[in-house]
Write a protein that binds this DNA or RNA. Structure first.
Lengths: 227, 227
DNA sequence: CCAATAGTGTCTCTAAGACAGTATGTT
DNA sequence: AACATACTGTCTTAGAGACACTATTGG
């Protein structure tokens, strides 16, 4: 049931950009690539591309995740917003549908192999000037992430399968940029029933070993409220 | 700096659909139009259209608001989400960027004049089968609206300039589908500083006249939390 | 004076947040 | 034994929610 002819007036390109967050060394990091073509040649930017026929925007996002960041495993992905303020792209009015993904540090297998585009995690605190409105997009993503931490369990997507309560607290502290009280945090978090003790303890430490926990479900879920 | 040639592979249509909410007779209503063309001919659907070159999606939404619903005044408008699940449009994969607008009943001047497309408010409780995934979109919009009532002041966009506390409470109760306690509601709402007494009282009533209030600012603002 | 809605205050209970010392491993 | 981190409980306070009577106007 394809339309025979669509007026040129109604055709557009549709961009898809992906904000890939992870936590390294207790600092929030975003994956950036160095553009080697116009426009904004040699600027750092979010990995992105254009939606193709016969794929959806989320499929495009996953393709970009794979092509430009070498990431394939199932990662948390969520649509953010469609940016199309006039002037965002010098080639004309090209809306971009943006996605956010969260990756635990341990899953960063791709290293710096793909030299061609130099994909690289950079700390939020020392971000250069980015191409297009990508700084705005990252700011938006961070805001969304912080909000969602407060009423969902998506923190699981930044942690390995097993982790200590201290690790969990550090993850919250890093994203929220806010210190939390250890006793209050544990009291509250354990009361939520989201995690279970695995019985195992952290090996290799040279201090008192901490108990390792795991999320009861590694799927997005909404909570009443917590932090 | 237009690109000379864009591969056909990367061109798409981009739809824009608008969910227009209002409250009539203490019931949530959505503006629908009856499609008089394929696909989904004769189905009720959200007012929508395609984004044109040289307009942004929000401009397209405002154009649709005007063309199909006869609404021009400044109304609250907010982007919701971009839907593009495969199969949502039988003509192919056409993403739609959706917007939500909120209109106070008093501002509904357009009546049922535009017979051509029969735009009509219908209560959420008695919605027919809609074209495309428009039912999903409305469900999403309602969920968003309910969430935002709890941490923003956007309820102002469903009320006239002056209103009684009872009106305000009814607006919340209608959208949230939940009865609220009169004393607790007033205590809390008045403590927020969002509204001010106008000194005037409701005229024309044949009971004890209620004080009329107005929002101190009819602009979207985020609150800590309230309901 | 009757009808009808407007308006008002207290108590209980839960949860958030402040706060410091003991326990248990490693070396 | 010394060290480093894991782990734990109480008190205070603020806010949410339950609850019922008085006030004011029009007819």
């Amino acid at each position: 049931m394809k339309r025979k002819t669509v007026p040129k007036e109604l055709l557009t390109q549709l961009a898809v950009d992906v904000v890939i967050f992870t936590v390294i060394d207790e600092r929030m990091q975003v994956l950036l690539i160095k553009r080697q073509w116009q426009p904004y040649e040699s600027f750092w930017s979010l990995p992105g591309g254009f939606m193709r026929q016969n794929e959806s925007t989320i499929q495009a996002a996953q393709r970009i995740l794979h092509e430009k960041a070498g990431l394939t495993k199932d990662v948390y992905i969520e649509q953010l917003y469609t940016f199309d303020a006039s002037g965002r792209d010098p080639r004309g009015n090209i809306p971009t549908v943006t996605y956010m993904t969260l990756i635990p540090q341990e899953q960063l297998t791709f290293s710096t192999s793909k030299k061609s585009q130099e994909p690289q995690f950079m700390a939020l605190s020392k971000m250069p000037n980015l191409a297009f409105d990508h700084s705005t997009i990252i700011r938006y993503a961070l805001h969304r992430l912080r909000s969602k931490l407060e009423y969902t369990n998506i923190i699981y997507s930044l942690l390995p399968k097993m982790f200590t309560l201290t690790d969990l607290q550090h993850a919250y502290e890093t994203v929220l940029e806010k210190k939390l009280d250890k006793r209050n945090f544990r009291k509250k978090y354990l009361s939520l029933g989201l995690i279970r003790s695995t019985g195992k303890t952290q090996r290799g430490g040279q201090r008192r070993p901490a108990l390792l926990y795991a999320f009861t479900a590694r799927k997005p879920a909404e909570l009443k409220k917590f932090l």
